[in-house]
Computed example of a mutant assay.
Amino acid sequence: MYTALLILILFVCFLLALVVLAQNPKGGGLSGQFSAGGAASMIGVKRSGDLLEKLTWGFAITLVVLSLGTHMLGQGVAGPARSVNQQRALETKLPATRSLPAPAPSGAATPGTTAPAASAPAPQSAK
């Protein structure tokens, strides 16, 4: 289904390009400033302009709807699409970071300090 929508989108894009290229220039914008815009509007056919304009809007709306359809259809199929660089970044393992020393238990000595005196019984001498 997804592939069929993609093929349909390509076909609509092709038709949209043909319809846009078939339209007569309106004589506005930069093209009217540099060329004989009045001559093109006197010779142009008015009725075919309405049809081509409606076809342009129809193909443009169809293209947007099909694009949204492929987006909705493609979400559950393969998960989020990632670029090659994103995939490689996720696959690479980061170097191990130096971990901080674990906190010492409350009675243990920390580096640079002396251990508290233990209250161990003194060894008994043999008599």
Rank of each mutant, 00 (worst) to 15 (best):
K127E: 08
A108Q: 13
A117S: 13
Q23I: 01
A109T: 08
T3S: 14
S67H: 06
V77F: 13
W57M: 11
A117G: 12
R47H: 13
A104P: 04
A118D: 07
P121I: 00
L94M: 11
P123T: 12
M72T: 15
P103F: 15
H71K: 11
G107V: 06
S67G: 14
A117T: 14
Q86C: 06
Q87F: 15
A17H: 13
A104L: 00
L16D: 06
L16T: 01
K93F: 07
S99M: 12
H71N: 12
P80M: 04
A104N: 05
A102S: 13
A89Y: 02
G28E: 09
G112P: 10
S83A: 03
A126W: 06
C13K: 14
G29W: 00
V65R: 00
T70V: 14
R82H: 06
L18F: 06
G38T: 02
T110L: 09
L8N: 03
S31E: 13
A102C: 13
K26L: 15
T56P: 00
T97D: 12
V64M: 10
L15R: 09
C13N: 03
L18Y: 05
S67Y: 00
F11A: 15
P123C: 07
A22T: 10
A60N: 02
Q124P: 03
Y2V: 04
P25Y: 14
L5S: 08
G37Q: 07
I43D: 01
T62W: 06
L16Y: 05
G27E: 03
A108T: 11
L66Q: 03
G112W: 07
R88D: 12
L51C: 06
A115H: 05
P123D: 08
S41V: 01
L5W: 03
V45S: 15
A122S: 08
I9Q: 14
S31F: 08
G38A: 03
K127P: 11
S119P: 11
T97K: 15
F14N: 07
L16S: 07
L63T: 00
S125L: 12
Y2Q: 08
M1Y: 13
L51H: 09
